[in-house]
Design a protein around this nucleic acid. Sequence first.
DNA 1: GTTTGTAATGTAAGCGTTTGCAGAAAGGGG
DNA 2: CCCCTTTCTGCAAACGCTTACATTACAAAC
Lengths: 341, 341
Amino acid sequence: MGVRIQDVAARAGVSTATVSRALRNLPNVSGATRRRVLEVAEELDYVVAPVASRLASGRTNSIAVVAPYIGTWFFGEVLTGIERVLHREGLDLLLFAVPDERSQEDFFTRMPLRRRVDAVIILTLGLSADQQDSLRGLGVPIASVGDPLADTFSVGIDNEGAAQTATHHLINLGHTRIAMIGGGSSFAGRFTAPRQRQRGFRQAMADSGLPVPIEYDVDGEYTVRGGSSAMAELLSLPTPPTAVFAQSDEMAAGAMQTMRRMGVRVPDDISIVGFDDHELAEVLDLTTMAQPVAQRGEIAVRAVLQALADGRSQTAPGRELVHTRLVVRSSTAFETAREKR
Amino acid sequence: MGVRIQDVAARAGVSTATVSRALRNLPNVSGATRRRVLEVAEELDYVVAPVASRLASGRTNSIAVVAPYIGTWFFGEVLTGIERVLHREGLDLLLFAVPDERSQEDFFTRMPLRRRVDAVIILTLGLSADQQDSLRGLGVPIASVGDPLADTFSVGIDNEGAAQTATHHLINLGHTRIAMIGGGSSFAGRFTAPRQRQRGFRQAMADSGLPVPIEYDVDGEYTVRGGSSAMAELLSLPTPPTAVFAQSDEMAAGAMQTMRRMGVRVPDDISIVGFDDHELAEVLDLTTMAQPVAQRGEIAVRAVLQALADGRSQTAPGRELVHTRLVVRSSTAFETAREKR
DNA sequence: GTTTGTAATGTAAGCGTTTGCAGAAAGGGG
DNA sequence: CCCCTTTCTGCAAACGCTTACATTACAAAC
C-alpha cells in the first residue's frame, strides 16, 4: 500500500536517487547495487507511484485516443491495435469519445487533454481549423488515423483509389447501372472518407462513360440499418441498379438483407461490393475492399512513440498509406450472365 | 502552457489556497473573490495540472476498465456506456485489454493498476481466487459487468433463465430436435456465461423431456465465423436439428449464413434464436434475447462513482440483474408448419 | 606519489497542487 | 463597546518522486 521509495532506499542502504535510477535501468548504477535494490523492491512489493513520478518528471506516460465512436467494428479494431502496442510500452491509454458534432465542439474547446497526456491519436475525425489549432496547442505529438493533419503524421488509405477499384470491378463485370450507398451529408465535415469514396466512385463511372443518376447515390449512414433502407430505396426505383458499391461492409450487409427480403438474388440479380473486410464479409461472401484496420492503429502509435523517444513535440509530418486490396467473393458476378428482368 | 496556480493567485491578488478552493467550488470563498479568481483563470487560460492535483490530493480521478477484448460488439457497447457517464463526471478512462489467458495472468500478477486508479470495472472476466485477491488488494472500489465478484457490486443478466426462455420459445413452437451453438471449453474459466446459458438450455430441454444428443451441443467460439462452421457441423449430422439456440447473435449470423449457403431456409427448414439483440439481429430478422448492454456499463460506473462519492473503498456488495426479453422476429416458426424432409 | 578522469552515489531542490491550521475580518448579541 | 461566532483567507507543509549538481572512490597515467 504505502511503501515509498525512501523505504526501499533505507532498507537497501542507498539513497532514493540510486533506487530511482536502479529501478529505471539508468546507467551509472553498479551491478551489485542494482541487484540489491531490485531485491529489496521486490521484497517490499514496491511499485513507483505514477502520479509522483509524473509530477517530478513532467511526463504523464499516457496517451489519449479520441474517436467518434467506440462501439463500432472499425474503431474497435483500431483501438485493439493501439492498446496492444501501448501497454507493451507501459503507457496508459486514455479513451475519449465524441459521438456527435456538439460533443466534438465541446471537447475541443474545453480540451480536457491539457496537461494530461504526452501524445494524442485522433481517429477519423475531420477537424475544423480551430480544432486543429486547439489540438496543436497541446504541444504534444499527434497522429491521425484517417485524415491528414497539417504538420503531423497520419496513416490512411487511398479512399478514392480504393473506391475506384471497387467500382471498376463492377464495371469490368459488365455492369452499367451501378449505384452507391454512402455516408450522406449528415456526416459533413466530421468525416471525409464518405466523400472521397464517392469521388472515386464517380470518377470510375465517368472514366467509363457511365452515368450516375442522382437517385443512384443514396445515404446508408454507415450502419447496417441505414444500408438496409438505402437498398430498399434503390429497389423501389423504376430502374433499379444491377450493381451496388457500398462504402462499408456494414451497409453492404444491410443491403444484402433487404435484397434477400425482397427476393432479389445476390449476385444473380444484383452484385454488391463492400468496404473494410469486416468479419461479416467473409461470412456473407461479400466482395469487398480490404484494409488492415488494427494495423493502422499500430502504425499511428509507433509514430507518436517515436516522437516521444526522440524528445520531439511533434510527430514526423507525413502520411503513410496502407494497402487496400479487392477481395473477390461471390457477391459480385457478370452482368451479362444475368437474366434481364 | 506553463501557467501555474500561483500565477493566477498573484494576478488575482489572493493566495494559491484560495484559488484552489475557488476553482473547485469549495465553500468558504466569498462570491466576489470567487468571481475574480474565475475571471483571472479564464484570462490566463489556466487549467489545473492533473498530475500535481493528484499527487497532492491522493485521488487519481481515473478509473480502469479491464476487458478481454475491445473490438467486439458487446464490449464496444459496454465501453460506450461507461465512457459516457465517466467523462460527464470528469474522470479519466484507462482502458486495458487482456485478450488471452496468458495476458490475463500477466496483468493480474503485474497489476499495472496499482497506485494508478481510483476504481476498477471488470468486464465479463472470470477471475481466479488469486486474481480476485490481487484485485481487491488495490483497495479501491470494484464493479463487475458480468460475473458476481465477492464483496463487490456486479451487474449481470440471468443467463440461465434467458437461455431457458429462448429454448422454451423453440420448444413451444413444436421443435424437439434443438441444438445449441455455444462457447466451448476453450473459454473455460475465463468466461462463465457460455456455461450458464448451456445450463439454461439443457434445463429447458430436460423440463420438456427432450434429449440433447452430444452432437447437438457445438462450439461456435462466440464469433461469426465460429457460428458458421458450427452450423455446418450440425447440418452434416445424420439427423440435423430443426431448431438452433445460438448463444450470441454473432454466432447466429454465422449459422444463418451457412444455412443460406447450403440451401437451408430460415425459418422454414430450421428455426434459430440468438442472444444479445446485436445491431445485426434486426436486419437479419433474427429472433433473439435482448439485453441492454450499454446500460450495464452505465450501471457499473454509477456503482463505483457512488462508492467514491461516499468515500468508501468498496462498492456496495450486491448484484443487479438487468432485464432480458425475447424479441421475436421471423427466424423462428412452428415446427409443424414445416415439411419434414 | 601526484594528477586526472571516470564511474558510482548522495544531496537537496524542485514538480504544481491540496489542505490542516491559524489568523483576520465581519457580524451579532448582550 | 466588547466578546464570541462565523466566514473568509493565507501560510506552509505535505504528496512521492526525478534530476541537476556535488561528492566520493578508484584506477590509470604520468
